[in-house]
């Protein structure tokens, strides 16, 4: 099984520890992932801004980079969703089809492909899980409150398997954090307010460690937590699952 690790551009630059944790966690689960150095981005920032056409060379580069792998794994549901849903703009050659189908969010890869439903380790903290929309509603990684009152999902289960962990019950389990790609600057005022409201929900309900499957949402929420100097640490879920300790 040839597995490639795709590290989103902003994770590469700002959150290398998330990439490292992804690599290490996969290793613990018996999978040696390779990081093709020529990788760049999935093209989502351009496409979501309306410049899908300008993103096509990026799509092609992505396919060329990853087509020889059986699985392409990324610690970001949003990028994976983009590859799966929006690479339909490319001519659907066998390579394109293969790459689209083989691209997995890390959590989905662990639970669905590797069949791992619990992990060893302890994390005795009150953890607030932020459900990122593209993972949840796009990739159906977690139940949606629009459809059912049952709060369940792959990541929630994996985290729950850690000893001593307590997951925060939020007032609004799956409201968007307001990051939204370029929305976070083009609609700065609304984006910030949405993020503040999300953080407030966690604070009110006792979260001390805020986590999720998508670093983009977490970067936005962390920006608010740090600006307000709140007693809350922000970690990508893979860091927790890989045994990262709280500072």
């Amino acid at each position: 099984m040839r597995v490639a690790l795709f590290i989103p551009c902003y994770v590469d630059q700002f959150y290398p520890q998330v990439g490292i944790a992804s690599l290490q966690l996969l290793q613990k689960l018996g999978v040696t992932a390779h990081f093709p150095a020529q990788q760049t981005c999935c093209g989502q920032p351009l496409a979501n801004s309306g410049c899908e056409r300008d993103a096509l060379p990026i799509y092609r580069h992505f396919v060329a980079t990853f087509q020889c792998y059986d699985y392409i794994v990324a610690p970001s549901g949003s990028c994976v969703y983009h590859v799966r849903k929006h690479f339909d703009k490319l001519e659907q050659t066998p390579e394109v089809q293969k790459v689209r189908a083989a691209t997995y969010d890390l959590i989905d890869f662990i639970t669905q492909v590797l069949g791992v439903t619990e992990l060893p380790g302890a994390f005795p903290h009150k953890v607030g899980l932020h459900l990122s929309c593209h993972g949840q509603r796009g990739l159906h990684q977690a139940n949606e409150s629009e459809l059912t009152p049952v709060r369940d999902g792959q990541l929630r289960r994996l985290l729950s398997s850690l000893d001593g962990i307590e997951l925060t019950e939020l007032d609004r389990n799956d409201e968007c954090c307001g990051f939204g790609g370029t929305f976070c600057v083009s609609e700065e005022a609304i984006s910030a307010r949405m993020g503040q409201d999300r953080v407030q929900d966690h604070l009110r309900n006792g979260t001390t460690v805020l986590t999720g499957g998508d670093m983009s949402c977490l970067m936005h929420l962390q920006g608010i937590v740090r600006r307000r100097q709140l007693p809350m640490q922000v970690l990508h879920a893979v860091e927790i699952l890989n045994g990262e300790m709280v500072k």
């Binding site: 700002f14 290398p16 976070c184 910030a192 920006g223």
Partner: peptide, 12 residues
């Protein structure tokens, strides 16, 4: 615009 209400990530 990012920095109106948010800190930028600490660059590693």
């Amino acid at each position: 615009a990012w920095a109106v209400a948010r800190e930028l990530p600490e660059p590693p």
